[in-house]
Simulated assay, not measured.
Amino acid sequence: MTLNFVRIAYAYDRTRYHPPEVSGKIATAIVSPVEESFREPVFLELGVGTGRVGVPIVARGYRFVGVDVSPSMLEVMRHKIAGVGRKVRLIEADARELPFERGSFHAVIGVHLWHLLDDWQRALLEAFRVLAPGGFLFEGWDVAAAENEDWRIQEKWREILGEMGFELKRGRHQRRLAEVRQAMEQLGLEPVEETVAEWIEERTPRQSMEILEERLYSFTWGVPEELFRPSLDALWEWVRDTYPELDQPHPIPWRFVIRRTRLPE
């Protein structure tokens, strides 16, 4: 399918946010080691999206560059940083072909990025190319608790699609993270992972369904159009039978993980 980022940009920003205190902890975990190593550091975020990770860094006054292939995502972020974005550049560009000189940045950030790229190796090499000696690569991702109602709804959808003859493939993100780690270790680098924030999100069954309908998860993108709507209609019927109160929130425990890798000086 062809992704319509114009349609999903605001929906993504509305549903994939972090609470303010979580955003602050993520920003601190990124900027602190860089600030200790470099004077007046410059940050680059690949696939910056609507700025849920970048905006808190911008708000602290650092020089920041964000790139994304979606002008709609960048436009949402521009609205967010209006008035505080004096040291910010937002550029429509591909992470696999960055328009920057070698060694231009002291930190490169990529959050939920690698699994979106079949040729992720190019983006990884580009990240290393634009990093200064001793610079940091920060990878970040959200991890939900294994058992929650949102997951249960997704699993039911997978079952419905299976009955229609389509296998919904999940887990690509975690598999890709393992591949990237292996690639970095083969280069002699030493990635370090750390959970930097934990929180509880209250999400209703209706919101879980809306997220699927908007195709905000990458695992939804491969579902053919001819199966997408009928399968969701069947899922809606199951959800209404299973959750009489569609707007009753259920807790989802989350944590945010950062993997930090430093280049040799």
Rank of each mutant, 00 (worst) to 15 (best):
166 F>P: 00
240 R>H: 00
3 L>K: 03
62 Y>T: 02
144 A>P: 08
183 A>T: 10
8 I>R: 07
52 R>H: 12
212 L>G: 01
230 P>K: 01
65 V>M: 05
98 L>D: 05
139 E>C: 10
233 D>I: 01
14 R>S: 10
134 G>S: 13
263 L>I: 00
12 Y>H: 12
195 T>F: 01
40 E>L: 12
27 A>K: 01
62 Y>G: 08
174 Q>Y: 05
57 I>E: 12
95 A>C: 15
33 P>G: 06
214 E>D: 12
10 Y>L: 09
111 V>L: 05
18 H>D: 13
135 G>P: 04
49 G>A: 13
192 V>S: 04
253 P>C: 08
114 W>M: 14
152 R>D: 11
201 E>C: 03
262 R>L: 06
72 S>E: 13
195 T>S: 14
126 E>A: 13
167 E>P: 00
137 L>K: 03
228 F>Y: 12
91 I>V: 15
229 R>S: 09
241 D>E: 13
222 G>W: 12
69 V>I: 14
177 L>E: 10
57 I>A: 04
66 G>I: 02
62 Y>F: 15
63 R>A: 14
231 S>E: 13
245 E>V: 09
88 V>P: 15
56 P>H: 07
17 Y>Q: 12
192 V>Y: 01
43 F>R: 03
246 L>I: 14
47 G>T: 07
45 E>I: 04
260 R>C: 13
6 V>F: 02
85 G>Q: 10
28 T>K: 13
145 A>Y: 00
71 P>Y: 13
102 R>K: 14
201 E>P: 00
170 R>F: 02
255 R>Q: 14
134 G>Y: 07
200 I>D: 09
83 G>F: 06
24 G>E: 14
162 G>F: 05
78 R>S: 10
137 L>Y: 12
211 I>Y: 08
262 R>G: 00
67 V>H: 04
37 S>Q: 12
65 V>T: 15
261 T>H: 03
24 G>W: 02
219 F>V: 13
184 M>E: 15
136 F>Q: 00
34 V>I: 02
253 P>S: 15
250 H>Y: 15
39 R>K: 10
29 A>I: 04
258 I>V: 14
16 R>K: 13
165 G>H: 07
5 F>R: 02
197 A>R: 00
153 I>K: 00
235 L>A: 01
192 V>W: 07
53 V>F: 03
113 L>H: 07
49 G>K: 05
186 Q>G: 12
58 V>R: 05
206 R>H: 11
253 P>A: 15
228 F>A: 00
140 G>W: 05
137 L>M: 07
198 E>K: 14
16 R>S: 07
90 L>P: 14
66 G>W: 05
117 L>D: 10
141 W>Y: 15
83 G>P: 09
207 Q>N: 02
18 H>W: 06
138 F>M: 13
249 P>Y: 13
78 R>T: 08
145 A>N: 10
253 P>T: 10
204 T>L: 09
250 H>G: 01
188 G>V: 09
206 R>Q: 06
104 S>W: 02
